[in-house]
Each structure stands twice: as C-alpha cells, then as structure tokens.
Design a protein around this nucleic acid. Structure first.
Lengths: 199, 199
DNA sequence: CCTCCAAACTTGTCAGTGACAAGATTGCGT
DNA sequence: ACGCAATCTTGTCACTGACAAGTTTGGAGG
C-alpha cells in the first residue's frame, strides 16, 4: 500500500504524455468499428485512461476531433498519390492508389468527405485538402491530353467521380459480392473502362 | 371551458391520423437540415405533436425509421430510372436522372447507401433496392454492347461508380464551385466523358 | 347494440452523450 | 524560487435512444 499525496492507492500521473495521438488513434479504431457516429468522447477518454472532459482540451469539440482526423487523412492521401506518381505515370494506377487508400484508411476516408462533421474553415484541414487535390489533379492532367481547355477539367471531375464512387460503393458494401473480394484488382478494371488502353 | 372525459381543457385526439407519413416527412426535413445524425426521435415526435415514444410504434427503432426511408428512396429511384428509360435510351440521360434524384431527394439518397443506419435484412428495403438495381443495370446494358461477357458488368460498375461518385461529391460540396451551380448540366458533360458520342 | 381485442399512443424511467464552467496539477522558462 | 500557461479533473446541464407498463381508441364479431 502506497501513500501518495496523502491518499491511499495508485494515483495516475496528471499528464498523459501524448494524449492527442492516443485519442486520434483510438478514434480511428472506433470509426472502423461503428462508423463516425459511433465515436463518443467519453468512450475515447475511457480508452485513453483519462477523465471525461480530458479530450476537450486538445480538440475543443467532437467536430474538432474529426476535423483533425480529416486533415491527417488528406495529408496521408496526398503522400500516397504523389508517391504513386513518382512510381508510374499511369492514371489507372493513380486511381487504384486512391481506392487502396480509401479501403486501407477507411476511417479517415469516411470522415474526410463529410463536411457536416467538420469545422469547415479549419486552416490545417483546408491546406491538407488542397495538397491532396493538387496531387490528384496533376495526375489527371497527364492523361487528359486528348481533351482541350475546359474539357480537361471535366475529364478530371469524371476521373475523380469514378474512383471516388467506386471506393464509396465498395466500402459501404453496395457492390455485388460476385465481383470478387479484391478491391484493387476490380478498381483497375473499372478505371480502365474510363481510360481504356491509354493507361 | 370544456369538459372532456371528465378533464378540463383541450385534449388532443389519441390517434394522430397518419403519424407514419408525418414522421417520414419530418425526418426528410430534419435530414436535409442536419444530416442523418441530426434526426432525433423526440424532436420528430415534437413536430408531429405526439409524445416521446409515439414514433416507436411505427418504427421500432431509429434504424427502423431510416430503413423505411431508404426503402422509399429506392422505390422512388426505380420509378425515376424506368421513367427515363421510357423517354430515351441515352445512358448519359440515365446517369443525369440518377444525379438529379440524388440532388433533389438528397435526404433519401444520403440514407440509402449507408447500411450502418439500416436494419440490414429488412425485406421491404431489399426488394426496393433490387428493383432500383435492375432499372439501372438494364439501362447500362443498352450502352455496353461494345463490351462482351464479363466486361459488360465491369462497364456497369464503372457507370454506376461515375454517377454515384459525382452525386456524392456534389452533394457534399466537394467539387470546385467554379464548375457552376447546375448539377444536371455538369453531370451531363461528366457522363459524356465515359460514354463519349455513343449517348 | 354490446363486448372485447389489437393497434395506436402516453407516462415514467434509465443509462449514455456532448458541452461547458470552474478548479486542480504540472512542468517550464525566467 | 516563482509564476504562468498548458494540461487534466470534477461537477453539472439538457438532450437522446430505448424500453416497460399503462391508457385510449376504433372496429370486428357476437
């Protein structure tokens, strides 16, 4: 039996060490388990071994938490996309990379495109989003050269819509199970429909 | 001053008349205002002028409510799509109809593709979903005739992904505002990228 | 016309939640 | 050694979804 601060028993240190990271990481777990709505600040605090309102100092809101997660997600996506572009200049592969990200980092992905869950004008989020947008748009330009002027932008929207729609439908299990269980391989074939033999 | 049932004052009728419809309709309003998470059974009851647990008799759950709404949505979508196919055999127009539905019936659309909000094996929902799926797949076949065998299915997935992704990105305001404010016209141009001059 | 039953609603209650205010504790710079 | 700012705690509020048990109603069958 210990005497600590005049009280009996174990008294945890007042400071957690790296609460912020711990919270973000636990939030990812909770989202993959129960979706973004299933994130509870209290449960989060519980998992981190911290009191109810502990998290609120790092993210003043629940929306603050999810905003931070979305920003992290856009940063990761940007890294993935630029890495892919350095490896190959095939748009299909860029699309596959987008889908792979959506599937592997599903928790992040689910939060990234839901502005209703964000603090919309958070600077970190905006910056990260623009970074990712640039990485994607740049890759599409490489392949859009059969289109001119405004058509190039439209082609970009089409490409984005295609991979985003596919990723969404896959993640929400809305695609026919007969199509197989390998999202990457399927994504490759689907993306090829848009860009054909051009790559 | 009235004497009703031995009590003084106004006593509302015990039976609402058409609570179920009123609830579904109010739910649509609440979703368009605050998203699916912003639906509260109590607020719903309040708007219908009914007690807290009133709704629970019609939809035993919150999930039950949203399931019914999703089923209604799939039915509406199926009607829209088949009506479009009778009007024209252009796939682009079918895609535009899909997008128009997603934008006009946004509340329904947001709920339809989120199985985490449903009672997954509800028969009414399953049936309605299959109906809509058939209407969409049938339309894609009309245009997929340059592909053979399994490729036709892949083309269908690509088409669905494209319009679904576009609708999602549009609704979540993730598309560049410079692209204009007319989703239908934009959707037409985007869909044309996939199916070119073929229609 | 009566009776009774199932459907439609109410009342009361419970645990869990997000948000906030005010206080306690810590470490760091000076 | 001091004090300040960042970090975490405690206590509280209004709100929510879910359920159990009771009340009312319309209508079907006698």
């Amino acid at each position: 039996m210990h005497l600590v601060n005049g009280k009996i028993g174990f008294v945890p240190p007042y400071h957690h060490g790296d609460l912020r990271r711990a919270l973000l990481s636990s939030a990812v777990d909770m989202i993959t388990e129960h979706g973004p709505a299933g994130v509870s600040l209290r449960e989060l605090a519980r998992r981190a071994g911290v009191s109810n309102a502990g998290p609120m100092h790092h993210f003043k809101d629940k929306a603050g938490l999810l905003t931070a997660l979305a920003a992290e997600g856009f940063t990761l996506l940007a890294e993935t996309l630029t890495a892919t572009r350095e490896r190959t200049d095939s748009f299909v592969e860029l699309g596959v990379a987008y889908v792979r990200f959506a599937v592997e980092k599903r928790a992040h992905f689910e939060v990234m495109f839901r502005p209703d869950l964000h603090h919309p004008d958070d600077p970190a989020l905006t910056e990260a989003r623009e970074l990712a947008g640039a990485a994607l748009a740049g890759g599409v330009e490489d392949v859009g050269d059969r289109h001119t002027g405004p058509d190039r932008r439209i082609a970009g929207v089409a490409a984005w819509s295609l991979v985003h729609g596919f990723a969404t439908l896959w993640n929400t299990r809305n695609l026919d199970p007969e199509l197989g269980d390998d999202p990457e391989e399927l994504a490759r074939r689907v993306a090829a429909v848009l860009f054909g033999q051009r790559g």
